[in-house]
Design a protein around this nucleic acid. Structure first.
Lengths: 121, 121, 121, 121
DNA sequence: GTGGTCTAGACCACT
DNA sequence: GTGGTCTAGACCACG
C-alpha cells in the first residue's frame, strides 16, 4: 500500500499525523507494537530514513516508547494519550474558530454551517 | 509594525491570507486602495520582494486590480468577493470536519464543542 | 577546524552540547546569528545533514530561532536561556550526586574531593 | 522485578554499573556469590544474552571470578576493589568538573552548589 | 532483526 | 544563499 501524500506538508509530518490519528481514534491501542521502521517504510512507500524520523517524532511526543532491538510501542501511559486527544482536538477547534472569525463569521454561524453539513450536504 | 509569522507557512501566504481576511470581513472595501508595495513591506517588516509576491498573488486571485501608476485597489467585482468568502469558508469547514473525523469525532460532537466554546471561555 | 568527537555519543549530540555550552557561557549571545548549516558543516567536518539535525534539535529546545532564508539565530528570550543554564547545571549536579552516592560517597566527601582538586590536583 | 532503564545507555552497561555500585558500596562483599545468569536475567526482566554479557564484562574488569560449575563470585582481591572504587570516583569527578566548566562554572561555584544541596532540599 | 547514526547528493521553497 | 525534505545506501550497537 503505497500512500498518497499532500504535497504542501512534509511526508514525515503526514505520517506522524496519521499514526497519531490511529492512536487517538483507538485503532492503535496502548502497548501495541508498531511495524518496524523498515517494514512500515516499505508499506508506505517511503525511504527508511523518513520513517525513522516519523518514529523519532512520535517518541519525542511521548506517545510511543522504544524498546531497543524489540521495536516501537504505543505508550501505556493512558493519561498522556487522553491529553494528546484533548490537545489535538482543542488545537483544531481553536484554529478553526480563529480562521473563521478572521473571515468575519460568528460562532453562531459556524455552528449553523456544521449543522447544515450534518443534515444535508 | 513588524509582524509575527507562523513558521510553518510561507510569509507571503500569511500576508495573502491576512489581506484576504480584511477584504472578506469588509475592513477593506471594494475600490479601496492598498498601500504601495514598499510602504506595506516596511510596515510589515518584510522584504519588498516578498510583498511584491503577495500583491501578485492577490491579483491572480482576481480580488485586486492594479492601475498603472496609481496603485493597487480592491476589485469592485462584488460577486467575486462573495464567491471568495464562500469558497474560503467552505474550505475551512471541510478541512475542519475532515481532521476532526480522522480523530474519531462525530459532527454532533464538533457542534457541541463549538457550543461550549460559545457559552464558556 | 575539523573536530574530534567522542565515539560513544552521537556526533549531532556533541555538537548540540557544544553550542548549548557556547550559549550558556555567553560566547554566543541572544540575537547572534549562527553560521549557516553548510558553513558550519564544513567547519566541523561533518555532513550537512548532520549539522541540519543539530540545528533542528536546538530549535526544538527553544534556544534558537529560524528565520527563513536568513539564517538561524540565538533566541532573544533571555528567560529561556537562564532557564536552560539552570536546568543543565542542575541536571549535571544531580546526576553527579546520584552516581557518587551509589558508590557510597557522602556529599561531604564529594565536596572534599572537589576542594582538593581546586587547590592541588 | 523488571527494572527501568535509561534509554540512552545500553542495558548491559546499566547493569554493570549497578552491580559495580553494589560491590563498591559493599552491599556485595568479596567472596559473595552472584545469582546465576538465568536467575538474574529473569529477575531483571532482561534477555539472558544481555545478562551473559554483563557477567563477561564484570569478569574482564577483574571484579568477579567464575568457578566452573559453582557460579560467579565477587573477587577476594580487595586491592582491586579499592582501585575500582578510586578510579570510578575520579572518572565521575573529572567529567563532572569538565562539564561544569564548559558551562562556565568555576570549581568554587560547583562546591557552593553542592553545599547548598547538602543543607537544603 | 531492531532502532539509530552518518554520509552523499539531489531537489525544493522562501527571502 | 538560506533552511528543509527526501532518497539511497552503509554501518553500528543492542537484544
Amino acid at each position: 500500500m503505497t500512500m498518497d501524500f499532500m504535497k504542501d506538508k512534509p511526508i514525515y509530518q503526514q505520517l506522524v499525523d496519521l499514526i497519531c490519528g490511529d492512536i487517538i481514534r483507538g485503532s492503535l491501542k496502548p502497548g501495541d507494537r508498531l511495524p518496524s521502521v523498515r517494514e512500515y517504510a516499505v508499506e508506505a512507500g517511503v525511504n527508511a530514513n523518513t520513517m525513522q524520523r516519523v518514529y523519532k517524532e512520535l517518541e519525542q511526543m511521548d506517545i510511543t516508547e522504544t524498546k531497543r532491538g524489540q521495536g516501537t510501542f504505543v505508550t501505556e501511559n493512558r493519561e498522556r494519550l487522553a491529553e494528546l486527544r484533548e490537545e489535538t482536538m482543542l488545537g483544531l477547534v481553536e484554529s478553526f474558530i480563529h480562521n473563521m472569525e478572521s473571515l468575519g463569521f460568528t460562532q453562531r454561524e459556524m455552528i449553523e454551517v456544521l449543522q447544515s453539513k450534518e443534515r444535508g450536504e
